[in-house]
Computed example of a mutant assay.
Amino acid sequence: MDLFSTEKPLNLLPYDGEVIYYGQVISSGRLAYYLQRLLEDIVWKNDEAIIFGKHINTKRKVAWYGDAEYAYTYSNTTKHALLWTEDLLALKQVVEQLSGTQFNSCLLNLYHDGNEGMAWHSDDEKSLGRNTTIASLSFGAERKFAFKHKSTKQALSVLLENGSLLVMKGATQSHWLHALPKTTKVARPRINLTFRTIV
């Protein structure tokens, strides 16, 4: 995306929310650098969830960073934030400038290949507040990101490219589910940074 362009990115959703896709916002020369730094410097852990009373460890790895040691609970497990790294702060600045929103934390996901994904869900935890804004920055393999309306079941998807930014805001989390479908076609890792605001 040209940072000096006056064209405003369009809302991908037809109704009940706003999802703005900015395309690639990180310069091509910095993509490999950031992917390497995130793989090496982030304190990755297998994600944990308690589903139907069963404790599950996912193959996907996660990390949680922020302004302070915020607690964040989802899937019946609680995580405590680590303090920002220098690279995360630099990326946060880019995302805040483009989205016009300030964020105080970031949940990072590491998908080793296309065999790892994310099932349908919405980020509607109480700690995020109502009509929250979530900015998702992607590095590594291109992956399809899907949306499905909770009542009408209308579905749509977007291909998230290396270095791209997607922002979900307004009533999106109240009305739409999103997912990262698994695929056998992707053999490379993808990291996504989801900047959010813990209330």
Rank of each mutant, 00 (worst) to 15 (best):
L83V: 02
L98G: 04
A141S: 07
I56R: 11
W44M: 06
T85E: 09
T73N: 06
Y33K: 13
A90C: 10
K79I: 13
N192D: 04
A68E: 14
A81Q: 03
Y70M: 05
A179R: 01
L83D: 10
L89M: 15
A171T: 12
L83M: 11
L165W: 03
L88S: 11
P14E: 00
L108P: 04
L107V: 07
A155K: 10
L177M: 11
S127P: 01
R196P: 09
N109A: 03
Y65H: 03
K150T: 00
A68Y: 11
R188V: 03
G53A: 12
Y22K: 15
I191M: 10
G114W: 05
L35G: 10
S105K: 10
R188E: 11
E48K: 14
S122H: 05
W84A: 09
D41I: 06
E142M: 07
A71M: 08
G17Q: 00
L110T: 04
V19G: 14
D67T: 03
R30F: 14
T194H: 03
S136G: 14
S28K: 15
S138G: 03
Y65T: 05
I51F: 11
L82H: 15
P181E: 06
P189E: 14
Q24G: 02
L165K: 14
V167K: 02
S75M: 06
C106Y: 04
K126T: 08
K45Q: 12
A187Y: 08
S5R: 07
S136N: 09
L156C: 07
A32Y: 14
I191V: 14
G163C: 06
S157F: 05
S28M: 11
Q93H: 13
H149Y: 01
I42D: 03
G129H: 05
P189D: 13
A63K: 02
Q173L: 01
N162V: 02
V199E: 09
L31E: 08
L12T: 00
W120A: 09
K150A: 00
Q36H: 13
S127K: 14
F52T: 04
Q154N: 04
F195D: 06
V199N: 12
I134V: 12
G17P: 03
H178Y: 00
T133F: 03
T77M: 13
R37D: 09
N131K: 07
D47R: 13
D47L: 02
T132C: 13
T77V: 15
E48V: 12
L82R: 11
M168K: 07
Q154F: 01
L107I: 08
K150N: 00
V25G: 02
